[in-house]
Structure formats: C-alpha cells, structure tokens
Design a binder for these strands. Structure first.
Length: 671
DNA sequence: AGCACGCCGACT
DNA sequence: GTCGGCGTGCTC
C-alpha cells in the first residue's frame, strides 16, 4: 500500500490543502486521480508520496492518468502564479487542464467528421520578402541572447505579423516551438488563416471557446509534439509545450490579457516566467503599448524595436477633432457633427464605407422622469438601466414594446409608462448607445445600408464573422459598433471613421482611463487609410483639450507616454507601485462595511509599524458598482511602492482572509 | 467551495 | 407539532 498526498482540483475553503489517500496502483507525482472527499467524488493531482499516517485513509477511487498530466515546468509555473496572484494552485492547474479528463471520448481523428475544414491537407504559403526595417528587427531578435525580451512597437499594418511568422519558421527549422497570443481568437480570423496557410497542421488553435473534445484533442497533440505552434487567447500560455523558442503577445495592451477570475493572472507576467524556464524569447507587439511596458523599454528590461512605416501607405490618416460644445452652440442637436455628416456623405457618394464607433450598446444610458427626476435603476445593482428597443426600427420616443436592461447582471424590465414615484408621463431618454446611433443614422442617411455590431448582435456563434464578412463584401455602407469593431480587421474600403463620443471612456474614475482612451482612439483611427487612399478620422468630444485625445489625433504614442508617465509617478501608480485590490461583498450593507473596516484596520496596524511607509492604503470605499447582482461591495486598494513588500502584505492578507473577499494583485482597473 | 448538521419561525 | 430558513463546521 502506498500513501499519497492529493490536491483536489476543486475549492476546499482552505488554501492549497491536500489530503492523504491510499492506493496500490503504480502512480507517480502528477498522476491524475479521482477520490472520495466527504460525500462526493472529486478530481485530484498526486503531489507527494508520504508514510502511513496515524488516521484512517480512503482508497483512491480511479486513476485517470498514470502519467503526469503536467510537465515539471507547468507545476513550477502553477506554484509561482499561485504565490504571486494569491490564488489556489488548484485554480491554476484547472486552467491548465480545461477539460474533463475522466470522460470517455473519441478523439477527433476517430470521428467520421474529423476533416472539418480540410485544412490538414491544403497548399503551403511562401514567406513574404521582408522590408529592410523588418529584416533588421528579425535579425536582432534571432541573434539576441536567450531569455531576451522585446517590445515590437509599430502601427497597425506595419508588418509585425510577418516578423512573427518568420521567427516561428526559424524556430521550427531548429525543431523548436512557439506560442502566439492574441487578445481574442474570434476577432482575428485573418491572423489565424495566415498562420495555418504558412505552417499547415503543425499549428494548434487554443482558446476557451473550443468544444471540450477539441480542447482535449489539441492538448494531446501539443503534449505529444505533433503541434509545434500554438496560436491562441491568453490561456494558451498554459499549453503543455516543450522546447519553447518564442512567445509572442500581439496587441499586448489589450485588457483581456488580465484574467478577471481566479487565477487573476497577467498573461505578460506568466509569459515572462515561462520564457525564463525555457530560456525562450518574449516579443510583445503593439502600436499603443501599456505604459508599464514602455517604461520597461526605458529601463532596458525590454529592448525597443520600432517599425514606424506602414507597408502599403506610409502616412497615417488625417484626424479631425470636433468640439461638440460648438456644435451645440450652432444649434446642431443631432449626435453627428456637421463635419462628420459631410464626411459620411462624401464617402457614401464615392461608394466607400463608413465606420462609426460608439462605446456603449443599447439606445440610451438612462431613463429619467422630467418632473421629479426619478431614474429607472436596476434593483440588484443600483445603476441606471439601459434602454434597448426590442425592434431596431421602432421609434425611440414612442416605442411601447421597449425594454430596460441592466448591463451588469442582465436584469430586464418593462419601461414605465408613467413615473412610479410621481405618476408623471414625462419619461425621457438620455445618453447614447449603438442602437440610438443606428436609429439616428437611418434618419440622416435613409438610403445607406447600415449594420450594427455589438454584444447584442453577435451573441450567436458565428454572428460576428457573418456581419464582418457582409461588411467586407460591401453588403453594407455603414457599420456602427462598440470596441468590437476597433480591432484586427483589414478594411481597405473604409474612407470615414467617426468616433461619436470620445469622452465615455475618459471620465471613468480609474487611473488607466486616459491610457485606454488613447489606445482606443488610436486603434479606431487606424481602421482607415489601410488601402491606397487615405481615409479620414473624425473624433467628436466635449474635452478637445485632453492630452489623450490630442496625442491620439497626432498618432503620437511617445508624446502621450511622456505626459502620462509624469502623472503615474506623481500619484504612485504602476509602474511606480504594485497595486492590490481587495473587494468584499455580502448581502447586507452593514456586514460589508463592518468587514472591510476590520480588514483595513488590521492592515493599517501592520503597515504603520514600518517607518518609511512604503505601503499606502486607499479606502475602504464603496466599489465603482457599490451593489452588483444583489450584493453590496466595498473595496480597499493597497499601493506598494517597493515590490519586495508584496509577499509580506499577501501573507498578512492570508491571515485575515475569509470567504467573500476577492484579492486581485495588479488589477486591470480600480473600478 | 460545497454540503450536511442543527437550532428557531410560519404553516397543515 | 413539522417544514425549512441559513449560521457553523468539516472534508484524508
């Protein structure tokens, strides 16, 4: 009889607690088993052999894998992530094994419909000739020291992907592997196609949207070495890969690289660790890098490689900033400024296309009673409900079948015909969303064929691609959408890009809101001028003097960085500190306030013993959404100026931790 | 985390 | 008298 420590791959309340079981089977460390735990059967990983304990042990129920399901590197990585991001090792391991191991299943090859796309048997594409700029960068990276890190700084369309492709090819010649991370695989069908065309069936596609069977199948092929190139979303950083040469993180500034559930990891940080284990090279690519990333190039932690010319056309599109206060003074009450209307007309007349960007779905952002000021709020989240007309053609002010939605918890209700507090009928809609923009655009341009793209129109599997294909095939003249349209596409026929309101992102109470405004505007602006004719970009705003907007209009990232880094330094935000966001939620306001108060007091006690106060405590304060899905939320933010203290602080937090707390190390935002 | 056990209010 | 509310505590 052998005695083994088993880490259950489910939450057990106590952090990383393992349990002792007995077995006669020939298992090893890393074997996956199922075991009885209290009154249920759970999956668990064998982490240690131990001598017979002095309490009764239960038998391992079933061996799901005799071989280790994780490489040594993966185990080390899991431990490192759990330590740094304050989560259970089992959370990380579950992220590395995102399928049900116990289930009997036929692999893809055994199924009759195995050859879904036929891509396994297709043509291969030849590498393009590199420009001298691309060649220089390729040579620098290729001949760089092991474990070097690079920021490939270049505008959309400057040829970053071709460099990735040729480095991957170079790795393959040496029988080495590569991981290419993209923000969201469904948004980058073109990149996907290029990699498959170039490398055929050695490419594995990896993202959370795959069917379980596909995940399992892909995982096995990567593990066995059949697939040597992994292209995927953030979780692809957990692929069971060996012999790694490169990790590429494309559009590295994208917020989706931070996971907002346990494990709350930053893909870039995990990729750095992964590259250290393998002595591989890390290449981040972006036209609008994160402030922290660019800071690292100034620090020489990352090497800066700049591609500053577009392949097809080496000038960026002209950008006009429209002050919407002037439009209001002129008496223009529509959401389209005169300049934007003219530009759209011109584009339509010359059979070009138009892209209109609105950073919120729905028709209006709140519904208010003009007599008493009542606002229709979500009863669970206490934030205004968004108005979504059920039929896109219904008139905004008179629709009776209208519907109110909560964008946070999904609550829905009918719109009140009379005000529930004062019985007035003067119900008015304020604010702006994609649906409202669509209705207004139809009024102004009745002949134009208009499509809308946001979460509401792309819910169905494949709907995203359909709208996109339709627009590329010129079945539509105008596309109106949220940030979903800002990314990745090559749309050479777009002559006008209009940003209906640049301000929405800007005024969020978060230290990254300026950075996000800058990159969003730059990305949207980059959607035009990608063919042989220059496009035009029109930014409408009530804050034309804001530096994010000014530098975005000039396509000037370094200029923006120089100003933003001063702000970060002044207020001790990253990269000058490490942040920890502690959020507590419970069903009553009293309990929540009591608990956060207690946590803050305890943390203040330990922190004030230090003389130079390298740690700052902000709060406790109500969260940006003080009530979400029926729970009251308060938060505490810690600013740790010296990274070496982070571990000590986390140890303290662990002492006081109880259920209901969310600990987020290096949060994406402070909202 | 789940899930059972256990001790107090509104129902047949 | 019992069904069920969710506080407390345990899992090899």
């Amino acid at each position: 009889m052998k005695y083994v420590e088993i880490l259950p791959l489910v939450g057990t309340g106590a952090k990383d607690q393992s349990f002792t079981y007995q077995t006669t089977e020939n298992v090893k460390i890393g074997s996956l088993v199922s075991v009885p735990l209290r009154n249920r059967i759970v999956k668990g990983l064998i982490v240690e052999f131990v001598k017979k304990p002095d309490f009764a042990t239960k038998n391992v129920k079933k061996i799901l894998s005799y071989d280790s399901v994780l490489s040594e590197t993966q185990l080390k990585l899991a431990q490192k992530i759990a330590d740094y991001y304050f989560c259970n090792v089992s959370d990380v391991i579950s992220a590395m094994l995102p399928f049900d191991f116990g289930k009997k299943r036929r692999t893809r090859d055994e199924r009759p419909s195995a050859c879904r796309t036929g891509r396994e048997t297709r043509d291969q594409e030849k590498p393009h000739k590199l420009t001298s700029d691309q060649q220089k960068i390729f040579d620098t990276i290729k001949s760089g020291k092991p474990n070097s890190k690079y920021l490939l700084f270049g505008v959309t369309g400057s040829g970053k992907t071709e460099i990735y492709l040729q480095l991957v090819a170079e790795a393959l010649r040496k029988k080495q592997t590569s991981i290419i991370l993209v923000p969201e695989i469904s948004l980058t069908p073109q990149a996907l196609e290029r990699f498959e065309k170039r490398f055929g069936d050695t490419v594995a596609i990896w993202h959370s949207g795959l069917l379980e069977t596909e995940k399992y199948d892909t995982w096995r092929k990567i593990k066995s070495g059949k697939k040597k190139v992994v292209l995927g979303a953030r979780s692809a950083v957990f692929a069971p890969i060996e012999n790694l040469a490169y990790v590429f993180i494309d559009e590295e500034h994208e917020t989706s690289y931070k996971q907002d559930q346990n494990p709350r990891y930053e893909t870039g940080k995990v990729a750095e660790w992964l590259c250290e284990f393998f002595e591989a090279k890390l290449i981040l690519g972006s036209a609008t890098p994160k402030i922290e990333t660019f800071y690292k190039t100034r620090n020489n932690e990352y090497k800066l490689l700049t591609l500053n010319k577009r392949i097809v056309q080496d000038s960026m599109p002209p950008v006009k900033i429209i002050d919407m206060r002037d439009e209001f003074k002129k008496g223009n009450r529509t959401i389209f400024s005169d300049d934007l209307q003219d530009s759209i007309k011109m584009a339509l007349d010359s059979h070009k296309q138009v892209m209109l960007f609105v950073n919120r779905r729905g028709a209006s952002t709140f519904v208010v009673c003009r007599d008493c000021g009542y606002v229709a709020n979500c009863p669970n989240c206490e934030i205004p409900l968004t108005y979504h007309p059920l039929s896109p053609r219904s008139d905004l002010e008179t629709s009776l079948r209208s519907d109110l939605h909560c964008h946070h918890c999904g609550y829905q209700s009918q719109i009140p015909a009379i005000c529930p507090t004062c019985k007035s009928t003067a119900i008015k809609y304020f604010g702006l969303g994609t649906q409202r923009a669509e209705i207004e655009a139809k009024k102004l341009f009745p002949k134009a064929r208009i499509c809308r793209m946001d979460r509401d129109t792309t819910k169905k599997r494949g709907a995203h691609g359909e709208i996109y294909e339709g627009f590329v095939k010129k079945e539509f003249d105008i596309i109106i959408g949220t940030q979903i349209i800002a990314k990745g596409w090559d749309l050479p026929n777009v002559a006008t890009v209009g940003i209906i309101s640049a301000d929405m992102q800007l005024h969020l109470p978060d230290f990254r809101s300026t950075e996000h405004t800058f990159s969003l505007l730059t990305q949207v602006a980059g959607r035009t001028g990608r063919g042989y004719h220059p496009g035009e970009v029109i930014i409408q705003t009530y804050s034309p003097e804001n530096y994010a907007i000014k530098f975005a209009a000039k396509h000037d990232f370094p200029g923006f960085y120089d100003q933003e880094i001063v702000e970060r330094k002044k207020y001790n935000y990253p990269p000058f500190s490490t942040l920890i966001k502690l959020t507590y939620s419970s069903k009553t306001a009293e309990k929540t306030q009591e608990e956060v108060g207690e946590m803050a007091d305890r943390l203040k006690n330990i922190i004030q013993t230090g003389t130079r106060k390298p740690i700052q405590i902000l709060g406790p304060s109500p969260a940006f959404l003080p009530k979400l899905a029926g729970k009251y939320r308060w938060q505490i933010v810690l600013k740790i100026k010296d990274e070496r203290f982070t571990k000590d602080v986390l140890r303290k937090i662990e002492e006081y931790y109880k259920i209901g707390w969310i600990v987020d190390v290096s949060p994406e935002n402070l909202l």
